[in-house]
């Protein structure tokens, strides 16, 4: 009589374990956003971070209250832009991996989850690194310029991707090492950095 009784208990246990496993699988299944999210490659400043289409390296980070720049193609027409926040200037270099590509999306990710795209206020300014065609194995250096509140600087990361509307691709996220943000200088000169 004892053998069938043990069998029922073990069957019940197996069923319970299977059910628990199924529930765990269901709960841990990534949602739509997670499945469609970019494939993140993280790195530290100074080192090349490699994605599927390009690799990038942050060489310096500066902040300024005002920017000075010359119009593209007319170096004599110089303009200045101030900010109610702060200008963040990221000096970086990047190279394509296999074929020519662009940095289609450059943004700053803040500690509290905000995202700041590159500033669109520098009309006619010379092209930033994000506008240059990158060639395979050839490092191209340039700046990326953002405008953000001063309190968003601490702990900020740079996020770079080849395409803003194709999320199933690499996104490079590079720590800007701004745990203690530098004091902004009065102005940053893009004409003669």
């Amino acid at each position: 009589m004892s053998t069938p009784r043990r069998f029922r208990w073990s069957a019940l246990l197996a069923s319970a374990a299977t059910l628990a496993l199924l529930l765990a699988m269901r709960e841990s299944m990534p949602n739509y956003n997670a499945r469609m999210a970019p494939i993140v490659e993280r790195g530290a400043p100074g080192e090349y971070v490699h994605g599927r289409r390009f690799a990038a390296r942050v060489t310096a980070v500066e902040t300024a209250r005002m920017l000075r720049f010359a119009h593209s193609g007319t170096p004599d027409s110089v303009e200045q832009r101030d900010s109610s926040g702060v200008w963040l200037i990221v000096q970086a270099s990047a190279m394509a991996v296999q074929e020519p590509t662009l940095i289609g999306s450059a943004a700053i990710l803040t500690r509290d989850g905000r995202r700041y795209e590159q500033s669109g206020r520098l009309y006619n300014a010379p092209a930033t690194l994000a506008a240059r065609e990158l060639q395979a194995g050839v490092a191209s250096a340039g700046v990326l310029i953002f405008e953000l509140p001063v309190d968003a600087l601490a702990g900020a990361w740079l996020a770079l991707a080849a395409n803003r509307i194709d999320p199933l691709d690499s996104e490079l996220q590079i720590d800007l090492a701004l745990a203690a943000p530098p004091l902004p200088r009065e102005f940053y000169d893009l004409v003669r950095p």
């Binding site: 296999q98 395979a136 194995g137």
Partner: peptide, 8 residues
């Protein structure tokens, strides 16, 4: 290696 370059 399959790398590709356009004119500079």
């Amino acid at each position: 290696r399959g790398r590709r370059w356009t004119a500079a």
